[in-house]
């Protein structure tokens, strides 16, 4: 998957969870939770959705590394490079 595809995927799943957001206005360099009102159940749902879409399971211990949209791309890119 390309970076753009990964970004689009995360934004799509995010929109499913928070339908009110305008995904074009999400700043990829800013903490997602500062831009979208997400509780811990929403975050879990996002991780489940990403797992279902990509097969990548993100352990809880890695959550602190993944704060922005760019972080998602950086985290998922090496794990999805052959897909």
């Amino acid at each position: 998957m390309t970076d753009e595809e990964i970004k689009a995927l995360v934004l799509r799943e995010l929109s499913n969870i928070a339908p009110e957001i305008d995904s074009s206005r999400i700043d990829p360099a800013v903490n997602v939770r500062d831009q979208v009102d997400l509780d811990s159940m929403n975050v879990l749902d996002l991780m489940i959705a990403i797992h279902q879409a990509t097969g990548v399971e993100i352990p809880e211990a890695d959550y602190p590394k993944i704060l922005t949209l760019n972080d998602f791309v950086a985290y998922l890119r090496p794990r999805l490079k052959d897909r």
Partner: peptide, 17 residues
């Protein structure tokens, strides 16, 4: 909880609530 969630797949993880 951290220990417990390590054993679980993302679908079965618990929240502290």
């Amino acid at each position: 909880l951290r220990e417990e969630n390590l054993k679980r797949s993302v679908n079965d993880r618990l929240l502290y609530s």
